[in-house]
Write a protein that binds this DNA or RNA. Structure first.
Lengths: 338, 338
DNA sequence: AATAGTTTTGCAAATGTTTTCATTTTTTGT
DNA sequence: ACAAAAAATGAAAACATTTGCAAAACTATT
């Protein structure tokens, strides 16, 4: 069992060439004679040799990894984004180093640090809200970084994402325009989550524009889960005084709300209007189909992938990111107030 | 801009000690005097020095990464598993290298190879079905590996997962026992997907035990998406000859089926029974709540994490994996045939 | 067959760390 | 104050590669 793994020297010996030649046949194949290369390749296969990226990285060669830190992968929220980002980045020969911080910004810093120890070629973070330390670290090491999901002109780093404030505003305006005046909101905890906060601001401003606001006990805060949202909303509508519309911070919460209303026999949208934000997989096909604001995760993921790869390539050149606009999707869960 | 990043030698110079001491103060702090360590730490902070794992890895020191290759992260299916696995593994100081192969086993091999180049300390794959090459590669490099999601006694490598055949069997028996005789099945494509295949076998055997089988045009194959399943099922029930039960290969597909029936005004479970497999987030709270078989993703993820870490630690010692039993959850979408 | 040019190869230094062993410094017991 | 023991540090070799430069081996041209 102790046959140690083959290294480049073993290969060189077995193929009767120098290590340099083996190295070259990997990295600059055009510089080595076809015959030699063939011989080397055969030997490599015979010995089961696998290059050691770590030893390359040491020479300042790019390791081909990109760090991606997300709050969570558990729920539907980021999976579409992660998928498209990683797919695109893999096409370019990169592998992603993934970690989640559970909405703890301190933990995010620690993870970023560890990824830097691994000498990732670039980093991608979710949202614009990060600890000073994290920003400082990335800047100081000048690691190419993109911020995903949220876009802002004055972000400290290139970002590609949507305008979450606008998303909130769009849905808020829509609901108000339908004539609703008694409006509730169900949002996730906003600490460490600038996306949710921006959305909430957007909604509030939309209401404020008509002199409306969300009553204190109609502001529900729930974790990201169908189940939690369902419970909260079920309680909400059990009171005699009911809102005519419930604006949810994201689609998962809206699904929960929808299930709650269905169980209680409240008609949507006749009795209550429900809206989401996100347009996750499944929202379009929900019955009734969910009115929401599309945050184009797929587009964001692939644009971000393109950007980070460019950033890693051009080093100096600072590309500036991109705003992918949110889009209001009026479907069947919203209707005029009765 | 050209101030090259600080290395251990720069730190040593600035702190007026030798590189060895700096190294030690990181790796064996107890061997260096408190005062010196303090001086070093300060210098490290001042210069913004970050250790280079690549340079450590070269010395055979574990890099602290574990490769995780999944078919896809896009859908709900694996996200719970990925989350719990990565969370647990991070607790132990590892970072995960994630990639998805899109159900292409050839691609999986290429990814595994690349991860081995990065000298991951261990690997985790989904399912038991992998190309000969992949198995050979992992064995030959003797990289600690766990197979997730599916369990089988005679798997070629330690696996922790559920018994997908049994899962299919459980749900099949349940449906048959309710008196259904006209049964349809909606499954994902089974190529490169042993989980789905096992489930289907389980269902078929359950039916066969009563002399039943699924008619040719009642075997629907659809991609993993609510939308695709919804369409297929909508078409299915538009024919005069209708099944009284539809067994879905996983919960996502079942959701699609449920939405289709709702749209068509078919009562569940009065007119048609629907079942899923997986018990994803949201299935319990669906209205009506989904009868399904629980594949305990969370448990699998954390047990697998424990196992791989143990495997990496003990090197030689071969732990054997674990079967996490599936559990039938009878909820509201299944009922006796009328 | 000799020359010049080109292609292919090898040597040796370099990369950023860890580790073994030897040396220096500090502590302890008298 | 002194030797012996213990603790802290440094020098140098090792790790698996890449690369600049020079040498060697071919080709083409005369």
């Amino acid at each position: 069992m102790k046959e140690k793994k083959a290294d480049i020297i073993a290969v060189a010996k077995a193929a009767r060439v120098s290590p340099s030649t083996v190295s070259r046949s990997f990295n600059h194949p055009e510089l080595v004679k076809a015959a030699t290369r063939k011989r080397i390749d055969a030997t490599v296969r015979r010995l089961g040799y696998i290059r050691n990226r770590a030893a390359q990285t040491i020479h300042g060669i790019r390791g081909g990894t990109i760090g991606l830190i997300v709050p969570t992968v558990d729920h539907a929220i980021f999976s579409e984004l992660i998928q498209s980002f990683s797919e695109r980045v893999e096409e370019q020969g990169f592998t992603i180093l993934l970690a989640s911080h559970g909405y703890r910004l301190k933990r995010e810093y620690a993870i970023a640090r560890k990824m830097l120890e691994h000498r990732v070629d670039g980093m991608a973070l979710i949202g614009l809200e990060h600890s000073e330390d994290t920003y400082g670290l990335l800047q100081q090491q000048n690691t190419p970084t993109v911020l995903l999901w949220n876009y802002s002109d004055d972000a400290p780093m290139p970002c590609v994402g949507s305008d979450n404030y606008l998303a909130g505003r769009l849905i808020g305006d829509h609901v108000v325009r339908l004539g609703h005046r008694s409006i509730a909101a169900v949002f996730p905890p906003i600490s460490g989550n600038d996306r949710a906060l921006q959305r909430l601001y957007g909604v509030e401003d939309a209401l404020a524009a008509r002199g409306l606001e969300i009553a204190g006990d109609w502001r529900l805060e729930t974790p990201y889960s169908v189940s939690a949202a369902k419970n909260k909303v079920a309680r909400l509508i059990s009171f005699p005084q009911r809102p005519t519309a419930i604006i949810c911070g994201n689609d998962v919460l809206a699904w929960g709300a929808l299930h709650a209303l269905r169980r209680e026999g409240v008609a949507v949208p006749e009795d209550v209007t429900i809206t989401g934000i996100g347009d996750f997989h499944g929202s379009r096909d929900f019955e009734p189909s969910l009115t929401t604001v599309r945050i184009p995760a797929h587009t964001i993921g692939s644009k971000a992938a393109k950007l980070i790869v460019a950033l890693i390539g051009n080093e100096g050149d600072s590309e500036s990111g991109e705003l992918v606009p949110p889009e209001l999707l009026i479907r069947s869960t919203s209707g005029p107030v009765r």
